[in-house]
Each structure stands twice: as structure tokens, then as C-alpha cells.
Nucleic acid binder design. Structure first.
Lengths: 252, 252
DNA sequence: ATCATAGTCGTCTGCCTGACGATAAACACT
DNA sequence: AGTGTTTATCGTCAGGCAGACGACTATGAT
């Protein structure tokens, strides 16, 4: 097939972001309110057009910074610091997914600690962290009594795919630490798993598992009592990225 | 950001295919020879433009049919028959990945049994099954003595990603059956694992594992001696898609 | 002082896996 | 017909890991 420029239809290419964090024992996603049609006033995932000279991951990192102030974690820099984990999720290209034109969206998944406050163009009322169940349920009422309209476009599907990716990936990788601050306790890490999987885990078995997996956690020497109770050791994420054997997700 | 049609740059969107099969105890990928510049004469992954009214998965299924004659397995149809497994792999959008224009390629991964003979536009000399190591090694010589030039564009990266996806996915899913004909023996399935992982597995432990996993294999009642030796039971792929606990890939 | 909370160390049991012996049923020879 | 080769299939045993859960420790709150 010759590459005649008139032989292929032009597409708009966007990146959409599933930004996940754990707040108040719940897995939450960043949502922004749409200012223009279509779906004006509805909640949507943050995103935007890919620029002409930009790689897809660059566009995703730029959007992430614009919406949250988070820097994406560059894998080439060992000190991951405040950087959020960012990875490509999947691409959505149904011809009718945007009523105005043909848009192909390359969705990315970002995992961040609880710290940041959302800001959409500086307007906090148009951005929020919402529990993923609240964003995914159709027609219910959210915590604020507002009718929970479904997310704009196919963003409910994208969010569901991102949540599923995160849920499965923390099984066999050390990615759960991306939800934690630079230093954290075993209990805090356990609460991340409990929030993401929406299950209760045995603290003793969890402690044995994570401290017994080489390279997963590195003790910093410090302790903290910020969770109450007996002081807990502080850890940093170790170099290991793959968990073998994996963390087992309870059946029900 | 308003959706002014002049506010976003136009992209060409293509699908590229990583089609994998197992032949002669080796994991092989489908490669086609490029007829025009750039990379004229070099081997590349099959692919093509997404049409204006086509979904991404439809485009991938169409390209797969055009290149191999394989029908993609429609998940809504339980009888998978001759259909190949097809799933989205990842999207590649480096601004310089195609020297002519801005092309975003949505790569797909297809797994097929050994049956089909390649055909690229009816010309078999421009399509072949090649062992993935041969396609991925740089500067060596292939089986036919031909200098192994690297694949065109970023297709070596795409192929490597597809192979890695296949290798990890057969660990925790029943996807290895996609490499097998509709009816197959435990030994044939084991040789699929051995080819994809490039390892040797213990036949007795493998037999215990796959026959002991509920829903993985369904006996058809028949037997075959097409592999020589004692007649082996024939099985069909069962309904289970997830393997829990997973098949463990040997360390080395 | 007592309680509540959270963290940490152990024990026990059952399941799964890896290593490997043994038997079974075909085919290819001699 | 017997022997060897190949592949399939069943069984046994030891080690590792996870789930269930008891026990103890160290802090803050009342």
C-alpha cells in the first residue's frame, strides 16, 4: 500500500490519564469537570491533545504535571523522589467515541501518593479526587448528594481498565509503593493493598511476606508513630520491581 | 481547551501486528518484506492504516485476515474454532518513528496455531515465519545465510514487547492453547510452553499441573499417536481463562 | 493503671511444586 | 516374537510458602 498522504484519514490523538491515589482507605481517581460540550458539566478524566513534536509518554507527563503538579518518575533516574509512576495503559479508538471527530486516545495510568491537591487550570472546584466506585457506578448519588452521572466519553471504560491494571499489577510488582510517601511503614503499605483490592489482609502474614521478599523494602532506621500504637519501622522502596512469588489477592 | 480543528496536529494512525506461532519447537513471528521506501527490502511487521470508519480492533482483525487468512477470535462467540487470539499490545508514537510523517501505531498481538502459510498480497516470497531470536538479533546471519538486518521502523521494539507479553501471559492464563490446534495433547501443550519460554519442562509435573487445574483442559475422549510413543489423550481448551495458581516459569 | 491501637515474632497445618522412580502403550527394528 | 525407543501417565517424597491464629511489645488516650 503506497503512503499517499491522501490515502489515510487524519486523526486527532489525545492522551487521557487515569491518576490513582489512596485517600481515607479508598482508591480514588482524579476527575475534572468539563467546561465545554460535549458532556459539558460532566466529570471526565484529565487529558489533552498530543502536540506535533511530542512523544506519547511526554504528552502524558506534561498533562500530569499540568493537572496535578506531579512530576512523572523518569525510569532513568534512580532517585524516584516525589515522582509519580506513569505507564501507558491502552488505546481507545472507536469511531464514535467522540461525537465531533475521529479521536484516538492513548490512555495512561499514573499512581501517586496522597499528597497532592487537585487543580484544573487553577480552579479546584473543577477537579476532585473521587472514589473509583463512585465514578464507576451509574446513576447513584455521590457523597455530596450530587447525582452521579457517568463519566464523559468512554472514560468509565478507561477508568475501569486502569483500576484493573493497578489491582493486578500490585500483585506481582512492587508498584504499591508508588502510592506511598518516600518513607512508609509496613502497615501503611498494607493499607494500600487493602484499599486497592478492597479486602482485609492479615497484618502478621503481610508483614512476614513483605519483609521476607528480598529487595522489596529497605529499612531507613527510623521509626514513626503517626498511625498510633507501637512505633513502626520506616522503609523505603527497594530496588526490586518484580515480586516472586507474588502477593496473593484473597479470593473474595 | 476548545476543540478547534486547527488546534491539534493531524496524525496518521496505523495498526501493526505481532503474529506469533510455534513451529519446529521455536517461537516464530510473521514478517513481511517492505516493497517501498523507507526501509525498502527490509523485513517489517505486517500492518496498515486504520480506516475512517473502523475501530482499532476491527482494523487489526482486517489486517490479520489480509496477511494470514486467519479470522480473529470473536470473544462473543464461544466456539473459537480456527480463530486466532487477538489483543491490543501497546501504542508507539515517537515523532520520528516514521521519517515521512507523524504516525501513531497501535500494535496488536495475535497468537495462532502452526497451520497457516504466510501470504503477503499473494506473494509468499515477501512474507515468512521467522524465529523471534532471528528477527531480534542485530547483524547476525539467518538460517538462509541472509544478513539479518534489523526490522524496519521501531518494529524490533514492538516485536520484543509482544514476545514479552506472550511469555508472561501464558504464565497466568490459558492463552497457550491459542498456539494449539482445536484438539491437542498435553505433550503438545507442553512443547508450546517450552518453545515460548525456551526452557525444558518436566513432563510429569506439567501433566499433573494442567490436568489438575479445573477448567483448563476438557478431554474429548479421543486419543492420538501423531507425536509417536504411547497414545495420548486429546483435549480441547476449557472455559477457564485465568490460571490460579499460575504456571511457574523456571528461573533460568 | 487500664485500655485501645498498632506492630512484630512464632507456630502449625495444608497445599503446591520440583525432583524423580515406575509403569504403560505405541512404533521401529532385528 | 523380542528388544529398544519414544511418549504418556501415575505415584512418592521433601521443601517452601500461605492462611489461620496465639503471644508479646510499645506507644497514646482515658
Amino acid at each position: 500500500m503506497p503512503y499517499d498522504p491522501s490515502a489515510f484519514p487524519p486523526f486527532a490523538v489525545t492522551v487521557d490519564l487515569v491518576v490513582l491515589t489512596v485517600r481515607r482507605h479508598a482508591l480514588c481517581a482524579l476527575a475534572v469537570r468539563r467546561g465545554e460540550p460535549p458532556f459539558q458539566g460532566r466529570w471526565a478524566l484529565p487529558g489533552g491533545f498530543v502536540r506535533a513534536d511530542e512523544d506519547l509518554s511526554q504528552a502524558a507527563a506534561r498533562e500530569l504535571a499540568e493537572e496535578t503538579g506531579l512530576r512523572a518518575h523518569d525510569p532513568s533516574v534512580p532517585a524516584q523522589d516525589n515522582g509519580a509512576h506513569l505507564e501507558q495503559l491502552a488505546t481507545y479508538g472507536d469511531p464514535k467515541r467522540d461525537p465531533r471527530m475521529r479521536v484516538v486516545s492513548v490512555a495512561h495510568l499514573a499512581l501517586a501518593p496522597d499528597l497532592p491537591a487537585p487543580r484544573a487550570g487553577g480552579d479546584a472546584s473543577n477537579a476532585r479526587w473521587a472514589p473509583v466506585e463512585e465514578l464507576l457506578e451509574q446513576g447513584g448519588y455521590g457523597r455530596d448528594g450530587e447525582l452521579a452521572a457517568p463519566l464523559a466519553f468512554d472514560h468509565a471504560q478507561i477508568l475501569a481498565d486502569g483500576v484493573e491494571r493497578a489491582r493486578s499489577k500490585i500483585e506481582y510488582s512492587s508498584l504499591a509503593t508508588a502510592f506511598c510517601p518516600p518513607e512508609f511503614t509496613v502497615g501503611e503499605l498494607r493499607r494500600v493493598y487493602e484499599a486497592v483490592w478492597a479486602v482485609a489482609l492479615d497484618p502478621r502474614n503481610f508483614h512476614r511476606k513483605v519483609t521476607g521478599t528480598p529487595g522489596f523494602l529497605v529499612p531507613t532506621g527510623g521509626t514513626t508513630t503517626r498511625q498510633g500504637g507501637r512505633p513502626a519501622q520506616l522503609f523505603r522502596a527497594g530496588g526490586a520491581t518484580l515480586l516472586n512469588p507474588p502477593m496473593l489477592r484473597p479470593e473474595v
